[in-house]
């Protein structure tokens, strides 16, 4: 049994979730708590990867991060980083497709928190950053955790866009979903079964644990 796809999948999903967490919180705060022009447009752009077919997302990422793409060329020239057909590309794909889930959960969590607590903190002399750190974020925490878990699960299961931008290079860019696909295609049923079992158990435990924790974590 080759565990390389499992380890690589966990690595990609973890890094993608970290970025998704930071960007999701940042965008949810700016779009929903600040007065900025074009809120609806920004929000639509953020949620688009959830609606678009993965192959379309993968193709768009190829255009942007390819060697001649605007960001791909910049990264290669200034940092020597190649995105296409590397684990970095797979991570970007996983981050982009998991970001809408993170954003939606964090947004719902921010909006469901009664603004009176933030107002109370304001009258007590708190800076905006301290209000976010001590009031907004802790009260939204259960929703944020829910977003983290769902984003991680989505990143772990990413297939279409990953295949387009990172390919299926064993030991380099082959993740569990792509490994399953190619195992089935080449008749390696045992390998496919084992990977499917691992993914199913892992996802089951993750969601079960989250639900149990969320039931306990209730401030109100």
């Amino acid at each position: 049994m080759n565990f390389a796809p499992v380890i690589l999948s966990l690595k990609i999903a973890s890094v993608a979730t970290v970025f998704s967490f930071l960007l999701g919180n940042l965008f949810a705060y700016i779009i929903n708590k600040k007065k900025i022009p074009g809120k609806n447009i920004w929000e639509t752009v953020l949620i688009l990867p959830m609606i678009l077919p993965p192959s379309v997302m993968g193709y768009l990422l190829l255009i942007v991060f390819g060697k001649r793409g605007p960001i791909g060329a910049f990264l290669l020239e200034h940092f020597g980083v190649q995105v296409v057909f590397t684990w970095v590309g797979a991570t970007i794909a996983a981050c982009v497709v998991s970001l809408p889930l993170m954003y939606q959960n964090v947004k719902a969590a921010f909006l469901s928190t009664d603004p009176i607590y933030e107002q109370a903190a304001m009258t007590l002399g708190s800076s905006e950053w301290r209000i976010f750190r001590t009031v907004t974020f802790p009260l939204a925490w259960p929703g944020v955790v829910s977003g983290v878990v769902l984003a991680f699960a989505r990143a772990l299961g990413e297939f279409g866009a990953t295949l387009m931008i990172a390919g299926n290079i064993p030991g380099k860019t082959q993740t569990v979903p792509t490994a399953i696909y190619f195992a089935v295609e080449s008749g390696k049923t045992e390998m496919a079964n084992a990977l499917v079992l691992i993914m199913t158990i892992f996802s089951f435990v993750l969601i079960l644990g989250l639900n149990a924790w969320l039931k306990k974590k209730n401030y109100y």
Partner: peptide, 20 residues
């Protein structure tokens, strides 16, 4: 002046104690 710089005390009707 922003609320944080006014040096006032405010007791809200629902108290608004931070539940966390």
């Amino acid at each position: 002046k922003p609320a944080r710089a006014r040096g006032l005390g405010y007791l809200f009707q629902s108290y608004a104690l931070f539940p966390n």
